[in-house]
Design a protein around this nucleic acid. Sequence first.
DNA 1: ACTCCGGCCGTAAACGTTTACAAGATCCCC
DNA 2: GGGGATCTTGTAAACGTTTACGGCCGGAGT
Lengths: 347, 347
Amino acid sequence: MTEGPTITTIAQRAGVSIASVSRVLNGLPAREDTVRRVLRAADELGYVPNSVARSLRNRRTDQIAFAMADIGNPVYVAMVREIQPVLKEAGYRLLIHSTDGDAGDELGVLRGLRERYVDGLIISPLRGVTREHVEAIVAARAPVVVIGALPEDMPRDALVDNVRTDSRAGVRLALDHLYAIGRRRIGFLNGPLDTVPGAARAAAYREGLEALGLPYDEDLVEVGDFYRDSGARAARALLARAPGVDALMCANDLIALGALDVLREQGRDVPGDVAVVGMDDTDLASVTWPTLTSVSLGSAERGRAAAGLLLDRLQNDRREPRAVVVPPSLTIRGSTTLPGTPPGGAR
Amino acid sequence: MTEGPTITTIAQRAGVSIASVSRVLNGLPAREDTVRRVLRAADELGYVPNSVARSLRNRRTDQIAFAMADIGNPVYVAMVREIQPVLKEAGYRLLIHSTDGDAGDELGVLRGLRERYVDGLIISPLRGVTREHVEAIVAARAPVVVIGALPEDMPRDALVDNVRTDSRAGVRLALDHLYAIGRRRIGFLNGPLDTVPGAARAAAYREGLEALGLPYDEDLVEVGDFYRDSGARAARALLARAPGVDALMCANDLIALGALDVLREQGRDVPGDVAVVGMDDTDLASVTWPTLTSVSLGSAERGRAAAGLLLDRLQNDRREPRAVVVPPSLTIRGSTTLPGTPPGGAR
DNA sequence: ACTCCGGCCGTAAACGTTTACAAGATCCCC
DNA sequence: GGGGATCTTGTAAACGTTTACGGCCGGAGT
């Protein structure tokens, strides 16, 4: 924990100026003799450049932040897993912020960008991008990539890149699949309608039924939270009200877990009596019993795309904002297929 | 993304020197009139201090890094969940590194400390602290807290704080519990013996049986990896060799998941025919069916303790190194208790 | 021998802060 | 009104880099 050598120390020992030291260490042209002496001195002293001083001078920190709602959520973990290597490859360090879905915290991170402690930010705001978010982004002095929907009236000069998924199409995939395996009374366990995903999935459920020629029945819909226990509560309520359901579409894998708990507890066979589909296709989906058919919203791809966009933007400051849409896909597992039955229909 | 105001800009606008600006912004005494003008100018300009420049001058970054093997591992997630708020409270930002259990990567982080991009580090090396780790830690210019075992010959001057758990005691807890519910042929599915936890758990299993007066039988032990599929393979092998086992002690929750898969597949009732205990008490333990009795190694506590030690050390550079040991505990769930039967024994 | 050119190198400034020091302003008291 | 004490302020240096600029030197061309 002693004070380490600086280029000045090296310069003295090698008998050259600090400018020469810097040049040698950065591989700029120098006489062969100078190079040798500087490198030797640096080596003997165990020199390591001070990244803070370098950042100040270069006006870049080689750090990038990723702000997400919850570090325990497998969706974000999948994103980090993809983002990390891409950034590392490009020479950036990744800072991870867990905002606990607190909009205040999110804004804090966004505002913190102005401190310049980071060259760019990837953020995935849980409840969508508010006007305050937009203001903070415009005021920020670093490029931002948003994972999730942007508001319609996003100012052109914000230069925000965007990655999203099509969760409506995802819901459709699931409904089509359930229809294909013969289900006709398909219940829906949703998350809060004031979240972006919640609202989108609600609409998609309605549209999807219509497209399939099935009636929309309010008794088949229950709204709760995106957690397991809340999913269980919702499932219990729905099953009590509409005992005849033969499938449950869940807005989230966690909700689906809760539903599975309740179905097991009530002795209903999955998928024999009731088929269940989750959403997000997290690691959990393959852990449950039966394993859970789930709509993948491409978390990994979204993460990768976001990292790519950010790096690209860091190269080219003035590029037009870009938006990437990752299509959903359906991973069929035990909760919708009887053993031995080949998975029917969709995809 | 425009170049922002600096204290110089503010000084001009307020008609004072930059020293006064700095003083006012840091709450040092100044004439009331000066304070007002500076604050007004700063506000109008939307000034935000440059954290890099401040770090250079103050020789501190207010950032702390946490290096772990795998961001997807619930054990580390639990640690982060505890570390984050503690550090935040103390005014530090948390940088998260996922080293993928790669010793090279771990060393990279450790060596990176010398760049001074961070004021301190919490690291949890998967395969223990090697001589190279020690060297890097001694050479580092920032305090380090290691979560996990330290080598015996740790140099005194390294000033490394340490947090560990007692996984031997943890194994004993599990064995005692299994014994208490009447199991006498207790199998053991372990992870690699060249990892620190693997070796410790192997020894503890032996000792634990001895303490209970049960014979050690090689046929009841299988070594694999700390993953689910590996756990399944190991369980299959063990069950084939020793069909009479009535309990499986697993070195890890993931291994236990694999074992549950196999038992279900073979139609053996859990816990009726075979009781199962996992280790780490991750979130997964409450997701499975049946839910999994698991030894908690206090990930959360360890994280909290590590953060505490680091903060403390940052206050007091010269303090003697300290070691915290977090005792294990047992969380009893469905995989060792028949419904209706009160959990017996241990604890 | 003079000029010109190119290659290396050192001096110094800059990045945006904080802070030691000394000078100027203000006040109080005699 | 002079003198000291106290408060406030500005100047400048420092943190550790990178880099523009100009100087020096040696060699080549005339």
